Lab assay of single mutants.
Amino acid sequence: ALNRGDKVRIKRTESYWYGDVGTVASVEKSGILYPVIVRFDRVNYNGFSGSASGVNTNNFAENELELVQAAA
């Protein structure tokens, strides 16, 4: 299972961040479909780089994520 702070690569092909590595911000335990919230260094097309207006978190299912580096 994934944990907060883990570095993960995104495998959801239609995602803006496909192939990117993000950090797990939190994992919901309530049984929702996309329980893993991942935070990225770059914002998506809703904002400009360096601006706070873009979105830099997204929810994924565990099977859409590949663990790159476990949290220390």
Score class of each variant (00 low, 15 high):
K29H: 12
N58L: 06
G31F: 12
E64G: 01
S51H: 07
N44V: 08
D41L: 12
A70S: 12
G31Q: 13
G31E: 12
I32Q: 13
F48C: 15
V36L: 03
V36M: 02
A72Q: 12
T23I: 12
G22Y: 05
E28Y: 10
V21P: 01
V55G: 05
A1I: 11
V38S: 00
K11L: 15
V55L: 07
G31Y: 13
N3T: 14
A61V: 03
N46F: 09
W17N: 00
Q69A: 11
A70M: 10
V43Q: 05
R39N: 05
G47A: 09
V21C: 06
E62R: 14
L67P: 03
L65G: 00
E64H: 02
P35Y: 14
N44G: 04
V55S: 10
E62I: 13
S51G: 10
T57G: 04
N63W: 14
N44L: 12
E14F: 10
D41Y: 09
V55A: 06
N56H: 06
T23K: 04
I32W: 09
N46V: 07
E62F: 14
A71D: 09
L65P: 01
D41G: 06
N58T: 10
D20H: 07
D20Y: 12
A72R: 10
V24W: 02
T13I: 15
Y18H: 06
F60H: 01
I32K: 08
G50E: 09
G47Q: 08
R39F: 13
R9W: 04
A52S: 11
S53N: 11
A1E: 08
N63E: 11
W17R: 03
T23H: 04
N3K: 15
E66S: 04
L33M: 10
N63L: 06
Y34I: 03
V21H: 02
V55Y: 09
G22P: 03
R42V: 06
Y18R: 02
V55H: 09
V68L: 09
A52F: 06
L33E: 10
G54P: 07
N59C: 14
R9I: 07
L67F: 07
F48H: 14
G47T: 09
W17Q: 01
T23R: 04
V43L: 08
D6S: 04
S26I: 07
V27E: 01
E62C: 12
S30K: 11
G22K: 00
P35N: 14
T13Q: 13
V38H: 00
T57S: 07
V36R: 00
E14C: 14
V27S: 02
R12V: 06
A71S: 08
T23L: 06
V8N: 00
I37K: 12
A61F: 06
L65K: 00
D6V: 04
K29A: 12
N59A: 14
Q69C: 13
F48T: 15
G31C: 14
V27M: 05
I10C: 14
D41Q: 13
G22S: 02
V68Q: 03
S49K: 06
F48L: 11
V36A: 00
G50K: 03
Y34W: 08
F60P: 00
D6G: 02
V27N: 03
V21M: 04
D41M: 09
R42Q: 05
N63F: 12
R4K: 11
E14A: 14
F48N: 14
S49P: 15
A61R: 09
Y16P: 06
L33P: 13
N3L: 09
S53H: 13
T57C: 14
S49V: 08
I10W: 02
I10L: 14
K29T: 14
W17D: 15
D20W: 10
N44R: 12
V55E: 09
F60T: 01
G50S: 07
V68C: 06
L65C: 05
R39G: 04
G50M: 07
V24Q: 01
I37N: 06
S26N: 11
F40R: 00
E28G: 10
N3F: 12
F60N: 01
E14L: 08
R12G: 02
E14S: 14
V27K: 03
F60Q: 00
N63S: 14
S49D: 15
L67Q: 03
S53I: 13
T13S: 09
Y18C: 05
G47L: 05
I32S: 13
K11Q: 07
G5M: 01
Y18N: 03
R42G: 05
L65F: 02
R42D: 05
Q69Y: 09
R12F: 03
